[in-house]
């Protein structure tokens, strides 16, 4: 079941001279199994959105529902929220603290009702997804790894819980190209396995390639919301907003200016190649 925001507003530091609205009556529903890309310029309210859905901040106005339950009601079980919603924050490597990799990745499982074996299996699975050899790393200190490895360890810690709903805030920033593609493929696999994914990113190319739906925020309000192919087709509008529509849309747009007939909604690399190859053979 979905996550639903109903007319959610959020104001920073209300009642002080620094008060600033971050979200204004935002309504948004993310259905089960969706892969949603969220874009927008710095300060558009993306980070606030994450904190509200994860229950780390309460909206100034409006309600947020998780599987039909208002998460800010008193009787709502917060542990359920933690179990269902996983968050990979920007620079997640700062959250490592345990003495061994095993313990750190298992941290989120601590209060969950699962057997020892289940927990160990979950940790092994998460580490393997993130490209680690479980036996080789389990007893090492997570603090002795390199920056990129630490980030992967931290993400493994979030995945070990197998949340139904995974939110990622700029997970690609600073990853090398190879790691980036492998990670995106993993997200696709998890998504196909039923995990709902909301990924915040500036990387229009990645979102065009992997997300089904794109939400663009502007000044705390919805600017665009629709299937990726449709949103990214508005090449000029997105460029004007400073969001960018990705390389593939850009190339398609240029070819169209030269008189090529590239159908709207060509936002993925393969599709574009097929179009070009098709023209070639004609």
């Amino acid at each position: 079941m979905p996550v639903e925001l109903r007319k959610v507003s959020y104001t920073y530091a209300p009642g002080t001279p620094y008060a600033a609205p971050a979200l204004k009556e935002l309504s948004l529903t993310v259905g089960d199994g969706e892969f949603v890309g969220v874009m927008g310029r710095t300060g558009c309210g993306k980070s606030t959105l994450i904190q509200l859905i994860a229950g780390l901040a309460a909206p100034s106005d409006g309600q947020i529902f998780l599987d039909g339950e208002n998460i800010n009601e008193r009787q709502f079980d917060r542990n359920l929220l933690r179990q269902k919603v996983g968050v990979v924050f920007q620079f997640p490597e700062i959250q490592l603290f345990e003495t061994t990799v095993q313990k750190d990745v298992a941290f989120g499982l601590k209060y969950l009702d699962r057997s020892r074996e289940q927990k160990e299996a979950a940790v092994r699975q998460a580490l393997e997804w993130m490209g680690f050899d479980y036996e080789a790393v389990r007893n090492r200190s997570p603090l002795g790894f390199s920056g990129g490895e630490k980030r992967r360890l931290a993400i493994a810690g979030v995945l070990a819980v197998m949340p139904k709903f995974l939110i990622l805030d700029e997970p690609l920033a600073g990853l090398d190209p190879l790691g980036r593609d492998a990670f995106l493929e993993l997200l696709r696999k998890l998504n196909q396995g039923g995990m709902t994914i909301v990924m915040i990113s500036h990387d229009a190319d990645a979102l065009a390639e992997y997300a089904d739906r794109i939400v663009i925020l502007k000044d705390g309000m919805l600017f665009k919301d629709g299937p990726a192919a449709q949103v990214f087709s508005d090449y000029k509008g997105l460029e004007a907003n400073g969001t960018g529509a990705g390389q593939v849309s850009g190339i398609a747009e240029r070819l169209r200016l030269r008189g090529w007939e590239i159908p709207a909604g060509t936002i993925r690399y393969r599709r574009l190649l097929d179009e070009i190859a098709g023209r070639w053979t004609q």
Partner: peptide, 27 residues
Amino acid sequence: NIRKAQTARGARFDSPRLWDKAKAVLP
């Protein structure tokens, strides 16, 4: 930021037992 990240991971920074109290704030 760290407090939020750990809360989202399910950290509970309090515990009724003295020994666990210390461990609870380590994250």
